[in-house]
Amino acid sequence: MSAAEDRDAASRNAASRNAESRVAGVDLDVEALMRLRLLSGRGDARRAAAVAPHGGVARRRRGRGSETYDVRPWSDGDDIRSLDRNVTARTGAPHVRSFHDERERSVLYLVDFRASMLFGTRRAFRSVAAAEAVVASAWRVIDGQGRIGLAAIGASGARCFGWAAGARSFPPLLVALAAAHRAALEDKAERDEPPLAAALEEMERVGGSSAMTLATALDAPGDAFDAIAGRIASRRDVSVLLIADRFELAPPPGLYPFRTRQEAGLLRIAQRAAPAPDERQARLRRLGARTLEIDAGEDAETIARALASFDGERLDGRSR
């Protein structure tokens, strides 16, 4: 056997061992993230059928659009507001500029992989549910001829893996996302969790005016979170997918051992506690962000259906 064949065999064996060592709900599976495209497409097909106008009549969009289509000489009947002063001055003859709709969507997705997200009591860790929700939404944008950026927040801050404008360019970003999650799981360093505000500020300069979708539980947001999030929301469309574990929503009675990086002990819940009011959504809405709560214990198809409705509201231009 040649050296190249030896390397190929070793790579296949390593990939097989990695696949066998993955734990569902704890590790991110790139193939499972790829399959989320089917769930997203199925939800979009149902939604398109529900809102399609009777008789196949296409609705005309209002307004003249915002993207320049061409510049041509003036002709009778043209709108004086479309006059292009620069071209007119340069050529000495009146020219008008025509416009069309800007149809491409551009969204930067940011997934929280900090230590507090590496927790779960039912189907999946909060970090895994966050990644699944983001990828399901991103597939919808890509299949709608949009452009997406993918980034993750870890113990050392935020990192953008790149941008994808089609189905072929998205899988490498998913591989990078899964690698970042694995690195977060394997990180044993005893250090303070970086505030969410710092990561948001890092990503503020990424993607220009692209919409931003953040998947997080909003743990340790930082003192400057409201100021930074409010500033970003004033300049671009911001959505927050609030990830919650079933234990947080309705903890059953019992005695629970726990360990954090600061302390360890036993937590006693004497009786089923009434869920505490969740102030996070109201707080984010005051800052100008749209919110959707996602239960990490729900299966991927249920999450995809909720996201289809949530993303549909943004596309239809409904209020927050």
Rank of each mutant, 00 (worst) to 15 (best):
L214C: 08
T121E: 01
M117I: 04
D223S: 13
V141N: 08
A282M: 08
Y69W: 14
S21P: 06
R7M: 12
I303V: 14
S210H: 09
R62P: 10
V57I: 14
G317F: 08
A14Y: 14
R285P: 10
S98W: 04
A229Q: 07
L249M: 15
A155S: 10
T260K: 14
E263G: 12
D187K: 15
L83A: 05
S11P: 00
T302D: 03
L315V: 01
D101H: 14
T291G: 10
A178G: 12
D226E: 12
R97Q: 15
V141D: 12
A129K: 02
L83H: 02
R246E: 15
L315T: 03
L38W: 05
R191V: 11
R168C: 05
D112F: 10
L200M: 15
A179L: 08
E67H: 02
A211T: 06
D295W: 00
A183L: 14
S209R: 14
R46W: 12
R85I: 03
R235T: 02
A124N: 04
L284D: 07
A93N: 04
A10R: 09
D79V: 03
V107K: 00
R62W: 04
Q271V: 09
T68P: 15
H100W: 01
A165F: 02
E190H: 15
R114L: 00
S98C: 09
P275Y: 02
G230F: 11
G297E: 07
P172G: 08
A158L: 04
P172W: 02
A50G: 08
G162W: 09
R290H: 09
S66P: 00
R314N: 03
A199T: 10
V135C: 01
L266A: 02
E248P: 02
